[in-house]
Design a binder for these strands. Structure first.
Length: 671
DNA sequence: TTAGGGTTAG
């Protein structure tokens, strides 16, 4: 009697309060305790469930089942498996409604051995035909062996929507995109319609393919079926559009989501950062915190590249502190992004320390570290790391070769680079891209092997990749080696592809000036003006007491301008006494020598360095960042300055770091 | 019993 009352009640119980009331009623009617237990466990009330369970001297099958399912649903997978073992020892036989939970626990704990033996038990008791059990098994195999997923799926006598979704997710998760999409089609043939689970497996595929038109088809389907306000679909859509470079669309979806969790915030933040909207990414991150959404580990690896690209150390350091407090510092993704940030912000030693603490660095960690060395001109460290990486059975990929070739190109290791280039193609079958060609071509050119460089660039198989920037490196080399003839040939190639290439105009006009062909130089400058082409303005900045001070070339707007100018005057006098001779080669303007000297002194990096010197105590390291390459004269001058004021001056230009100390620079004057 | 977001790029 009591039992039937309870059974009719139990599925309607929705709150703890109701459950308690029912419990009281059950005690009065002397209902079986295992039923009370199932009411509590279905609500995920572990404390209440355990109180009852532990009072049982010999728990029934129903009692075991309840407690196991309660553990699994709360994510307490170890306890769930432990209870299962105890249940078996007590001779209670497992049945259909306990296996799915157990298999799920196994899956989360990645205990594949136990999972397989469970599969054996399931077959022995003939439960492999059960849909729920089969689905749980497929889900487990989806994380280890797709072959087994197919096998279970093919042998299932009955399949439901979850079965299809599980196979599709398995295929998608294992990079078998074609198969996944094929199954979505087949599923329609079996009379089942894709639901929100299906879509959230499919959307990341189109994100990966950068196929926005098919992504939009899915978006349309989601709208028609009311899935577009689904939290999961929302983040997949945000991600898909962002990966297809349509961040505005991502933002629209984000702004209109009825609710947002940490993952939707993260998708949006990552979307901004991946598309170069670093400030916006950081703004959103702050807003996320203001909204009391706790960042997850993924959030940190998404936001860190923003600090790296903006070279804002103090922010990156704050985040590092946060990461340590959260205990996320052993996460590979976070470590890689952290070491990259430190390297890009000039702290190569900290980057190295983080790298060395990593248990098993993956290809990205190695590459970030190699790139960091390249950035700081530590070419031999980079080459050594590249070897070590291979010894550790990490196979170099496209990006790794970009990094190691960059290291060579920053140190003038031309033959090393050619060997690496050949090995990339011959040993690893990687087809070289623009970046690889650019690095080698740059090296050949600067080594004076101009014709070889010309042939090398001309050998690029894909014409569309022979861009202005690849040719420009050679053009710059032609200027240095004063080969006006080849330069003209190169420039012709550039203007054919990219008639607006401002850098090429400037370089070519420099080539003509250097060769004394003033008329030609003037002709080009007029052409530039006519086309409205202007040089990218130079800008340098320095962080003093967490405040960024920016200087443009010839900038007189800084409140301390007169002190800066005075300091530069004093420095110039001392530099000249030490033997400094201004190098006016880079000064394009047709002006008097005296004015050229003045122009050099007003270069943005020099203003920033002088401001750093007068704003910090003696001995403090000066760190300046510049948006273009350091000019030849400023490089010479900074070496003198470092010696005169006895300070280390670190300048990060657009491609690398220069560490100036005692009158020398870490780049060995090769940059 | 099924789902979404992450690190490296002259």
């Amino acid at each position: 009697m009591a039992k039937s009352i309870l059974q009719s009640h139990s599925y309607r119980v929705k709150s703890k309060q109701e459950a308690k009331q029912l419990h009281a009623q059950m005690i009065r009617t002397r209902a079986p305790t295992s039923l009370v237990l199932s009411v509590y466990s279905n609500l995920g009330l572990l404390r209440e469930s355990l109180l009852i369970f532990n009072s049982l001297t010999s728990p029934s099958y129903v009692a075991w089942k309840s407690i196991i399912r309660c553990y699994t649903s709360l994510g307490l997978f170890h306890q769930s498996l432990l209870s299962f073992a105890r249940m078996r020892a007590s001779a209670a036989r497992p049945d259909r409604d306990v296996f799915p939970s157990i298999v799920k626990s196994c899956t989360h704990l990645m205990d594949w051995k136990l999972g397989q033996s469970l599969h054996g038990s399931i077959i022995r008791v003939g439960l492999e035909i059960d849909v729920y059990t089969g689905n749980a098994l497929m889900n487990m195999y989806g994380k280890v062996c797709m072959g087994s997923v197919r096998k279970v799926f093919d042998e299932m006598p009955e399949r439901d929507l979850v079965s299809w979704n599980t196979v599709i997710a398995g295929n998608a998760g294992n990079g078998m995109y074609r198969e996944a999409l094929e199954m979505v089609r087949e599923m329609g043939g079996a009379g089942l319609k894709p639901d929100s689970f299906t879509l959230s497996s499919v959307l990341p595929i189109f994100a990966e393919y950068v196929d926005v038109s098919r992504g939009m088809e899915i978006h349309g389907y989601a709208i028609r079926h009311g899935f577009d306000s689904d939290l999961f679909i929302g983040s997949s859509l945000i991600d898909m559009y962002a990966k297809c470079t349509m961040v505005e669309k991502s933002r629209q979806i984000f702004d209109f989501l009825p609710q947002r969790d940490a993952i939707s915030w993260n998708s949006m933040i990552a979307g901004c950062v991946q598309n170069g909207l670093f400030d916006e990414g950081l703004r959103l991150f702050r807003r996320m915190l203001e909204n009391s959404i706790k960042p997850r580990h993924v959030t940190f690896s998404s936001i860190m590249p923003a600090c790296a690209h903006l070279t804002t150390m103090h922010l990156g350091k704050q985040l590092h502190g946060y990461i340590l407090r959260c205990g996320f510092d052993d996460n590979e993704f976070i470590s890689s992004s952290l070491l990259d940030m430190y390297a890009k912000c000039g702290r190569i030693h900290i980057a190295r320390r983080i790298f060395e603490k990593m248990e098993s660095p993956d290809i990205v960690s190695w590459t970030a570290m190699i790139m960091g060395c390249a950035l700081h001109g530590h070419a031999h460290d980079a080459l050594f790391l590249f070897q070590q990486m291979k010894v550790n059975n990490v196979r170099p990929n496209y990006v790794a070769f970009v990094a190691v070739l960059t290291a060579c190109s920053h140190a003038g290791l031309v033959d090393q680079a050619r060997k690496l280039f050949d090995s990339m193609v011959g040993d690893y079958g990687i087809s070289p891209g623009l970046e690889h060609y650019a690095a080698v071509a740059d090296l050949l050119g600067r080594a004076g092997r101009l014709e070889e460089a010309y042939e090398f660039i001309s050998s690029m198989p894909r014409e569309q990749e022979r861009t202005g920037s690849v040719w420009s490196t050679l053009l710059a080399a032609c200027r240095v080696h004063k080969n006006a003839e080849l330069a003209e040939k190169v420039a012709e190639n550039i203007f054919k592809i990219d008639p607006e290439n401002m850098g090429a105009y400037v370089l070519m006009s420099n080539v003509y000036s250097a060769a004394g062909r003033w008329k030609d130089a003037a002709r080009l400058r007029i052409a530039m003006k006519g086309r409205g082409i202007r040089k990218k303005p130079a800008c340098s900045w320095i962080e003093i007491k967490n405040k960024v001070h920016a200087f443009m070339a010839g900038d007189e707007s800084h409140p301390k301008y007169y002190e800066i100018k005075e300091a530069l005057g004093v420095l110039l006098e001392r530099m000249e006494r030490e033997g400094y001779v201004p190098n006016t080669d880079d000064v394009l303007h047709d002006v008097e020598e005296e004015q050229k000297r003045h122009l050099l002194c007003s270069h943005s990096e020099r203003l920033a360095i002088a401001f750093g010197i007068i704003s910090t105590p003696p001995g403090t390291t000066i760190r300046v960042t510049k948006n273009l390459r350091v000019c030849v004269d400023c490089h010479i001058a900074t070496k003198f300055i470092s010696k005169i004021v006895g300070r280390e001056i670190i300048v990060r230009d657009v491609s690398r770091f220069h560490h100036f100390k005692d009158g020398k620079c870490s780049c060995g004057d090769y940059w």
